[in-house]
Design a protein around this nucleic acid. Sequence first.
DNA 1: ACCACATTATGGTCAGACCATAGTCGAAGA
DNA 2: TCTTCGACTATGGTCTGACCATAATGTGGT
Lengths: 232, 232
Amino acid sequence: MDVSGWRPVKRTRTFEDVLAQIERRITEDGLTVGDRLPAERQLAEQLGVSRSSVREALRVLETLGVVSSQVGRGPDAGAVLTSRPDAALSDLLRLHLGLTGLELREVIDARLMIEQWAAARAATARADTSALAAALTGMDAAGSPEQFVEHDTAFHCAIADASGNRLVAAIMRSLRDSMRKYSVEAVRQVMDTSILRADHVRILEAIESGDPEEAARAVSEHLAHAYPTLFR
Amino acid sequence: MDVSGWRPVKRTRTFEDVLAQIERRITEDGLTVGDRLPAERQLAEQLGVSRSSVREALRVLETLGVVSSQVGRGPDAGAVLTSRPDAALSDLLRLHLGLTGLELREVIDARLMIEQWAAARAATARADTSALAAALTGMDAAGSPEQFVEHDTAFHCAIADASGNRLVAAIMRSLRDSMRKYSVEAVRQVMDTSILRADHVRILEAIESGDPEEAARAVSEHLAHAYPTLFR
DNA sequence: ACCACATTATGGTCAGACCATAGTCGAAGA
DNA sequence: TCTTCGACTATGGTCTGACCATAATGTGGT
């Protein structure tokens, strides 16, 4: 038997090759958001592959939130470069949660980490809090746990947005998105949302007064109230 | 014009439908890692769609790190459920960085957030630090910036692993992965890696002595040394 | 100018074929 | 009986060519 020198032959599927070439074009030619890729048929001919392979590559890019395909004709048709990582991150987390490859506890811990950081950041930067206030009034008007969670999500995502870091904000949105049903359940069990409301006000005031430590503390205690079973 | 009651018809592509049905099967039937999906041809016939559509759906799931396809025959062939979010996250970040949809500053900030949190967690939990020590000796033996970054990445990912949170660890790995080339450049510019080494030792000792605040501080100052241009 | 219809470029879908790969199974031989 | 080797087959990977739906664009008539 051959013991040395043999590397397993790298099996590269065609669509992966297409993928690599498209990515190379993006980085080398400096393509940016809004630019159009060639049409599927044209790309297939230029690369010497079938349209199916091109389509599979584009499907991957679409899944990752890098391109968006439009049918029809005109300047907006075809595969256009975008940058929408939110949906991709949400799908990713939701599916892996569903496979129980991740525990809910881990997601909530990650959320706590992000939110503390973001709240502290927002407080330091004295960020605009109008979105936070709007979400607050939305929660007051909510008539069901689902509606409450809707505005609650808006509130917490607004904190992440206020941090000014789009990557962190995107991760935050995805975390909330993928655990929506757990959030609704948590609100149902807590019943009394007045405690949560007081927490929200406290967070908001801490950010407005520019107190990062207090903002982080407020976030921490808020999550402890919202998920009492996880923080004993 | 009709002002009320009309919702735009939701255009659902076939593969999205397939995707939804597969996901439903995963959650409802409690499928888990290691289980096999039906063969492409069989799935296509059962769902009444073409094999291409099934393939596009599977391609999406593969991109998200949820299934892994093997050719051939036998128990390991076909589409098998997995849970490998790392590659998906890396691709996501790398592509969006390339599109300048994200600034390097944002990625580094996110990394700082994660690493401070993870180091503090590891210190509190008095986590096992053997992987950290191993990476440290690896860095000492490195002969090039590439090799150094290799072990440096291992060191920092080991911190995230030591936090015990797999989601956070996966995000960390992806962040490092997607910014590898920037890291190499940073090491090249810093030149003197002895400062970085001292930082690493300091982080390691803080974790071993169970001092979360010191661990977080050490991480923060380490990143300031590694990317002096970003932290003025 | 304006409107109605034909044209066309685009993605979306399908059917069917062929290839490469890797277990499975059975027959031939030791 | 056991081993070995070749045929078989189930699987994903790829390609071709066709047709459909959509939406902008050209074109002609009013």
